[in-house]
Design a protein around this nucleic acid. Structure first.
Length: 576
RNA sequence: CGGGGUGUAGCGCAGUCUGGUAGCGCGCCUGCUUUGGGAGCAGGAUGUCGGAGGUUCGAAUCCUCUCACCCCGACCA
């Protein structure tokens, strides 16, 4: 491609709304243009990258035996009513009406549609298993779109759905997909980690998320450096404390805390470790007030909380509810002296091991110290793992301690089971001629998000550094004085033709720009390999090669190359 | 949904408090010079000041309404 026939629109400055490096760089490099909140046009340069990611995903899906199809983006409400998700999915779903006032949505996902396909097409166990996938735009009306295409409302997703006659078959395909995903992200040159994930209300026996590792990630991951344990923090188990509860040594007493409404403040006032305080977070589950206890230095994990008995449907209590139930304003709540017929007490495992702890007194401006279970208050109604793990917690597999890191979720594999096939009556006849609900799996990759995630992981002060497998061009020829120098023009044209013939995706920068502009654009856009042709080098029959790289992935060194050897050198370097 | 903020040229911003008819940098156009790291000089174009209504002789500026976008929060009391 010649730059003069392509469309390059780079800028020195990024719009002020862009916060994240990848968002800024995508806008500055002219990969995307914003149309509205969470809506982006993929410009020719950006689309090249997106297509290259798609190509890798498509190849690996095909290799894994999945079959590509394309479902409608717009889906009738009836299907969603069948699965029961029309009401449940909520405001994240963009609902639309046609001219007859019939309800539709712009598909946020395609379980319903594919299940409808399956129930129409699959009659016999002999047709199973099957795995369908598509690469398509989805729309989710995010609460708060941000970070460009990282969390956009319209986004490109690869979604696959598998159908099975047995649990074993589902698990086999699940593993195949897991391996395919690992291949995809490896080929894309990304540092990633697969982690065990929460299966949510759907249940099922398996779910893994694939995260690109980046400090800007929105998800927190827990992993064990000494084993292969890795899980999303939503799921990662906090083991019960090894040590038994100590016997009380202090007596119960009130302490004045006129302004201390948080555990941090109280611990500072009393000059004790935060881990000696107990925090009470008030929830309402159904109609019941629930006092949730965690250690002062811990945080409630609401995903875990939602899995506890009686907590299927819960929310944080409002201030008025708190005052009514505890007869005390927020900031001084504690588990001592509660009316346990009205308030249920749910404690994290780490709390019941504590003795002589500090907590709110249920009186304004007062806390209690020297508090002990059994002596000062009854044991909790339920003890469970309901907190987030923290760095240093023992690994649930018993082989070391957990570390935390941030990740960008780019893939998710999921064993669905028969939730949708049962709800939508997707059955096949088994060997005995009996109708059975199909087992299902689903597998997603956020294609457009992968592009942003790759930039988060691969950029420097000058711009993007594309992994070779997703670069919009593999090599750029910067021709200095292309319009002025016959020698430069001849050499650049010849090399461009040679490399193009050799199948290398090469951009010839034949624009009438100053060298600095061309260098800066090439670096901003992130093209992995650069060749400079100018009269200065050509005098001696030489051209220059320079890789665009970071230390992590050395591509060889900058060097001068004889023009006569350029083709051989470059095709060898690019392994073609 | 709650709180905060911002809308002025393609992009980044000043001007708003204190009303007098719009400016800077980058970019863009023309010419000359320049040509190995985002050029210099000269000249030039571009705005319904987000929208609607109001106050006023006069509104980017004050008032009301509205729209859009961004940030924070929506778990630790």
């Amino acid at each position: 491609m010649r730059a003069t026939r392509f469309f390059i629109s780079t800028t020195k400055e990024a719009p002020s709304e862009a916060e994240l490096a990848s968002h800024k760089l995508m806008l500055r490099a002219g990969l995307i243009k914003r149309l509205g909140s969470g809506l982006y046009t993929w410009m020719p340069l950006g689309l090249r990258v997106l297509r290259r990611v798609e190509a890798v995903v498509r190849e690996e899906m095909n290799r894994a035996g999945a079959l590509e199809l394309l479902m409608p983006a717009v889906q009738p409400a009836e299907l969603w009513e069948e699965s029961g998700r029309w009401a449940v999915f909520g405001p994240q779903m963009l609902k639309i009406k046609d001219r007859h006032q019939r309800d539709f949505c712009f598909g946020p996902t395609h379980e319903e549609v594919i299940t409808d396909v399956a129930r129409r097409e699959i009659k016999s166990y002999r047709q199973l298993p099957l795995n369908f996938y598509q690469i398509q735009m989805k729309f989710r009306d995010e609460i708060r779109p941000r970070f460009g295409v990282m969390r956009a409302r319209e986004f490109l997703m690869k979604d696959a759905y598998s159908f099975h006659a047995s649990r074993d078959s589902l698990e086999a395909t699940y593993l195949t997909m897991y391996d395919a995903y690992a291949r995809v992200f490896t080929r894309l040159g990304l540092k990633f980690r697969a982690v065990a994930a929460d299966t949510g209300a759907i249940g099922g026996s398996g779910s893994h998320e694939f995260h690109v590792l980046a400090d800007s990630g929105e998800d927190t991951l827990a992993y064990c450096p000494d084993s292969d344990y890795a899980a999303n923090m939503e799921l990662a188990e906090a083991l019960p404390p090894a040590a038994p509860r100590d016997v009380p040594t202090e007596s119960l007493r009130e302490v004045d805390t006129p302004k201390q409404t948080s555990c941090e403040d109280v611990a500072a006032l009393l000059d004790i470790p935060l881990a000696r305080t107990v925090k009470l977070v008030a929830y309402v589950a159904g109609e019941q007030m629930v006092a949730v206890l965690v250690r002062g230095d811990h945080a409630v994990n609401e995903v875990k909380l939602g899995k506890q008995a009686g907590m299927a449907d819960f929310r944080l209590a409002g201030e008025a509810e708190i005052r009514e139930a505890f007869a005390c304003p927020p900031g001084f709540l504690g588990p001592v002296g509660l009316d346990r017929t009205r308030i249920r007490v749910l404690a994290d495992r780490s709390v019941i091991e504590m003795s002589d702890f500090v907590c709110g007194a249920n009186k304004p401006k007062l806390h209690l110290a020297g508090v002990n279970f059994s002596r000062d208050l009854p044991e909790p109604d339920l003890v469970a793992d309901i907190r987030n793990v923290v760095a240093g917690d023992p690994s649930p597999d018993g082989r070391g301690r957990l570390e935390l890191c941030k990740g960008i979720e780019v893939g998710h594999v999921f064993q669905l089971g028969s939730k949708y096939s049962q709800a939508m009556n997707a059955t096949y006849l088994d060997e005995a001629g009996k109708a059975q609900a199909m087992e299902m799996g689903c597998y997603g990759i956020g294609v457009s998000r992968v592009v942003a995630a790759a930039i988060e992981q691969n950029h420097d002060a000058k711009g993007i550094i594309w992994p070779k497998s997703m670069a919009p061009f593999l090599l750029v020829i910067i021709a200095i004085g292309y319009g002025k120098s016959e020698a430069v023009k001849a050499a650049a044209d010849a090399l461009y033709a040679d490399l193009s013939t050799a199948g290398i995706d090469v951009l010839l920068d034949d624009r009438d720009e100053r060298p600095g502009v061309m260098f800066a654009d090439a670096e901003l856009i992130g093209i992995p390999h650069r060749v400079t042709i100018g009269e200065r080098g050509l005098k001696d029959g030489m051209i220059e090669y320079q890789p665009r790289q970071n230390e992590a992935a050395p591509d060889g060194d900058a060097r001068s190359v004889a023009l006569a050897d350029a083709r051989t050198f470059l095709t060898g370097l690019l392994k073609l």
